[in-house]
């Protein structure tokens, strides 16, 4: 391990030097420059969702001949991510693609990076201060993600009954925005569905499973559970399978992890966007930015993988609605991510 790391480092440093030498010589052009150094920072490294996200990022890097390093903390907290933002600053990276584990705590560190002319792109999860990054590449608007999940559960429980939400951490910004959207969707479209409560599994499989138990103890008549996090929905599905309950489960999950539960009928349908695309487009946007081709501007466009993406307000780019998985397509998708 030590040997490879040192070797990698040597290569990285050499490339870095070449890159910097190359950068000063080349004029700005329409396509992203080759040989950029991009830091890919997930919320936490030991997480299957981010492994898929990084797959997309690395694919983009290969296409534009960038040197990309996937680096991040072992636990998903903002303060823990800051050390890696600092690393990217020290090592002279040209851009950072980050999924914010905390919507506020990383902002000061990102500002320092911007002061060093490093392009910041948030991908998957954004920060509150939209001036502290160029663009945010997000799956879809919170409204649509929240509403879609409510629609899925409503269809499964016949538009009436009690539902609970099994979320990630209480402070998870994405999840909180989606839950707010769920509440609005419930109020607007489903008067006969009541929200029994929001439970927090902290994106920890053990805690999530225990929270599932809590939900069933507190609300024996629960009809459905929405879990807008890949860790939560998988834990809930496993619990339902081993304990045999009638509760309907939906939310956001990885097809590869959820396939067994869909095939045996534990879960009927759930959804997700493609994390590979998120990582891919985020990295392409970062490369465009680092090449001087992309700034935050309402309506500005950039291309990634032959597709054109347009910035909305505050530099937010949406990739599209979550995709729904059921027994008809799960096998195919489970092989991809």
């Amino acid at each position: 391990m030590v040997k490879t790391s040192l070797a990698t480092k040597a290569v990285a440093v050499t490339l870095g030097v070449l890159v910097i030498a190359g950068l000063t010589a080349m004029p700005a052009q329409a396509a992203p420059k080759s040989g950029l150094k991009i830091a890919i920072i997930p919320k936490a490294i030991n997480n299957g969702y981010f492994t898929a996200w990084n797959k997309g990022a690395q694919k983009a890097c290969k296409e534009i001949s960038a040197t990309c390093k996937y680096m991040g903390p072992t636990t998903a907290t903002g303060p823990a991510q800051v050390a890696f933002i600092n690393q990217a600053i020290q090592q002279g990276y040209n851009a950072i693609v980050i999924s914010a584990a905390d919507q506020n705590a990383i902002t000061p560190a990102l500002k320092k990076a911007i002061a060093r002319k490093i392009c910041i792109v948030t991908s998957d999860a954004d920060i509150t201060d939209t001036k502290s990054r160029t663009v945010a590449v997000l799956p879809a608007s919170s409204e649509r993600i929240g509403a879609a999940e409510v629609d899925w559960i409503a269809a499964q429980i016949g538009n009436k009954g009690k539902v609970a939400v099994l979320s990630a951490a209480a402070t998870a910004a994405n999840q909180n925005a989606w839950i707010d959207a769920m509440k609005r969707q419930l109020a607007a479209k489903y008067p006969n569905i009541t929200l029994a409560g929001v439970y927090y599994g902290d994106d920890d499989a053990t805690k999530s499973a225990q929270q599932y138990g809590q939900i069933l103890t507190e609300h024996p008549d629960i009809a459905g559970i929405i879990s807008p996090t890949t860790v939560g929905i998988r834990a809930a599905a496993q619990e339902k399978k081993s304990k045999g309950s009638k509760v309907a489960i939906t939310g956001l999950g990885l097809p590869s992890e959820m396939a067994p539960y869909v095939l045996d009928g534990t879960v009927k349908e759930f959804g997700l966007w493609n994390p590979i695309d998120l990582g891919y487009v985020g990295t392409m946007a970062a490369a465009e930015c680092a090449s001087g081709n992309l700034k935050q501007a309402n309506g500005a466009k950039f291309t990634a993988g032959g597709k054109s993406y347009t910035q909305g307000a505050n530099g937010v780019v949406y990739l599209g609605d979550p995709y729904k998985f059921d027994s008809s397509n799960i096998v195919a998708f489970s092989k991809i991510y």
């Binding site: 030991n46 997480n47 299957g48 920890d204 499989a205 053990t206 998988r234 834990a235 496993q238 081993s242």
Partner: peptide, 17 residues
């Protein structure tokens, strides 16, 4: 028992217990 209980394990298993 932990593996049996959750039928699941990843890098965060047993964290902080």
């Amino acid at each position: 028992l932990l593996l049996g209980r959750f039928s699941f394990a990843d890098a965060t298993s047993g964290l902080g217990i």
